[in-house]
Design a protein around this nucleic acid. Sequence first.
DNA 1: AACAGATGTAATTATTAATATTACATTAAA
DNA 2: TTTAATGTAATATTAATAATTACATCTGTT
Lengths: 146, 146
Amino acid sequence: MQISMKCSVAVHCLIFIYEAKDKAKVTSTLLSQSTGCNPVIIRNILSSLKKAGIITVARGTGGAELCLSPSEITLFQIYSALEPNGLSGIIGIHSCNGLKCPVAQNIQKVLYSPYYKIEDSIKNTMEGITLQSMIDDFHKLLNNKE
Amino acid sequence: MQISMKCSVAVHCLIFIYEAKDKAKVTSTLLSQSTGCNPVIIRNILSSLKKAGIITVARGTGGAELCLSPSEITLFQIYSALEPNGLSGIIGIHSCNGLKCPVAQNIQKVLYSPYYKIEDSIKNTMEGITLQSMIDDFHKLLNNKE
DNA sequence: AACAGATGTAATTATTAATATTACATTAAA
DNA sequence: TTTAATGTAATATTAATAATTACATCTGTT
């Protein structure tokens, strides 16, 4: 129901910011050109990452930078920054409130535990993936092309 | 991006079918009343579950029944029955093809491994959840209400 | 054989969620 | 004060979900 591409775009931006360090000022326009997304979408994503303490963005003059080292930034942190409700509700549940059927009256409670387990396993997996590991993979890909 | 409520509705239907065994003929109309979903949606879901060998649906006369015991039916089987593409692509990736930026050219490959890990952890968790366990939880909820 | 009550499915419409765009106030260095 | 940014609200567009309509088909019953 809702792991949107925002997360992918955010990882893209973070790798870009890391690579551009001391080389170029990273503006939302630049990132919009690199990702193919609208600059306002980029600004919203950067704004979320900023609130989560992952990056700083200079007002006025512009330019984004990492606040943490890539090994301290996990995919779960990135995802959580973007999705205020976290993983809860990642799977849709139909609302059948007010119906007499006992299955209808209890289905939401029955699904709670399975869905929580799924959310928790996604969380654990995401916590095991760092920006550093993705940057490493990126560099491997660059080297393989030579 | 896409774990829809179909999965929840399917579990609802399967519990209903299990509970109604030898008591009532389970038609799509009945299930549509219990779930609050449109009967055609129900028929499509039942059709998918049927193709996956989880239930039988009698043509003409009507009525759905389980083909397997609830302990043999996992949440992953149910989910897979409904989603032909499985979990792949559960997380959206922006398309930035044809762009010069090296990040843009490699981001999809960089994200492949992390996203595969996530999909796999969801799969494993879903495989550990049986219809039986959900039916047990349902019965516990019924008893607690007395 | 005709009827009644089902399923199966294609085609269409409606609704909701995700993404993009426009507009403009605000910021800070030059 | 000009310029090039960010920040964000409001709106529009697009894509994904779900609902609806319509009708062919099936099968037990009368």
